[in-house]
Amino acid sequence: MNNTVFLRINGREWGGWTSVRISAGIDRIARDFNVAITSQWPGSPDGSRQIKNGDKVEVLIGEDLVITGWVEALPLRYDASSITRGIVGRSKTADLIDCSAAPAQQSGKNLFRIASTLAQPFGIDVVDAGASAAAVIDAQPEHGETVVDCLNRLLGQVQALAYDDEQGRLVLGTPGSAKAVTALVLGDNILSCDTERSVRDRFSSYLVTGQRPGTDDDFGEATIAAIRQSTADSGVTRYRPHTLQQSGTATTDSCKSRCEFEARQRAAKTQETTYTVQGWRQGNGKLWKPNQSVVVYDPLNGFDNETLVIAEVTYSQDNSGTITEIRVGPADAYLPEPTKPKAKKKKSSGGIEF
């Protein structure tokens, strides 16, 4: 299979890189790339065709499109023996990370419709890959809030993921929605493993307290922790309690969801592992991709044909060879935190109704 990396910029393909690094993941919204070449501009011996910051770029591995985005940096490094020029960029969805959301009041709409409205000014399409169609609340961006910060609040309400695809679109979906055809197997295709297996952030029990509405005769300390919900993590055997305060006006359900989420995600994060495999493609010639469920056999790490989710892939190529770093973990490790309820506010007329 063709693993040559090309950058398509200004209608022309550039190649000949001495190092390549391309990363994509389900918990990062925008994939990125960093390529470099030594001694001369790629694809042009005299460097007559210049590439500028802000140019639209498509990154391809052979015939496979992997990123559609923008050039963001043009690093230059040299010494007495060599000159190295690079091109760095991110997906189109990077603007959703960096930029403020337009003020908009939206009620009774689902995640897809609200995300589409938020992304529209940036020319970014939104893909519904299985997100909940339930209506969400608290959808108005706060003053100066980025699009991603606003989206994160909405994702927590419906327990969905937001990430980008090869075409620079925003995708709304659930963990492990596609399947890898090749398993990760110790003694076969796994070259190396890197995992901490840390329990530092895990606790034996989680208690979430919330404040109920007060009255003129019932207020202060009596209402602050009036709602209490707890759960335990059987994987932590010594006494390690952890108490969290739910912000805003809480409910029994919101406190229960929060403590159960904390226990599940912290336990799942313990199992996160990064594997390195040779090459960039699976057995059927397809690239390794994020959000694929993959079977992992690694008895040294406690995985006995366990199905995990590929959270991130990084394709790299340099003098050491061509490899893929694949970060995997249980699906619970990547679901967003349930939305914390806010205190009720008076309605204002400052928003724009869509």
Rank of each mutant, 00 (worst) to 15 (best):
L287T: 03
L287F: 04
W288K: 04
W288L: 02
W288E: 04
W288P: 03
W288D: 04
K289P: 02
K289T: 07
N291K: 01
N291W: 02
Q292R: 11
S293K: 14
S293V: 03
V294W: 11
V296S: 13
Y297N: 14
Y297F: 14
D298P: 06
P299M: 11
N301S: 14
G302E: 15
G302Y: 13
F303S: 09
F303P: 10
F303V: 06
D304Y: 15
N305Q: 12
N305G: 01
E306K: 15
E306G: 06
E306R: 14
T307I: 12
T307N: 11
T307P: 06
T307D: 10
L308M: 06
V309Y: 09
V309S: 09
V309R: 09
V309D: 11
V309M: 07
I310C: 08
A311M: 10
A311P: 01
A311F: 04
V313N: 05
V313Q: 05
V313F: 09
T314H: 01
Y315V: 03
Y315S: 02
Y315E: 04
S316C: 03
S316K: 07
S316T: 05
Q317E: 12
Q317D: 07
D318I: 02
D318G: 07
D318Y: 03
D318C: 04
N319K: 08
N319W: 00
S320C: 00
G321T: 00
G321Q: 00
G321C: 00
T322P: 01
I323R: 01
E325R: 02
E325M: 00
E325L: 00
I326C: 01
I326M: 01
R327C: 10
R327L: 13
V328I: 09
G329Q: 03
P330E: 15
P330A: 12
P330R: 15
P330T: 07
A331V: 08
A331W: 14
D332E: 15
A333E: 14
A333L: 10
A333Y: 15
L335W: 10
L335Y: 13
L335E: 06
L335N: 10
P336C: 07
E337Q: 15
P338M: 12
P338T: 10
T339F: 13
T339K: 08
K340Y: 06
P341Q: 08
P341M: 12
K342D: 13
K342L: 06
A343R: 11
A343T: 10
A343F: 08
K344H: 07
K345C: 05
K345A: 09
K346H: 06
K346I: 07
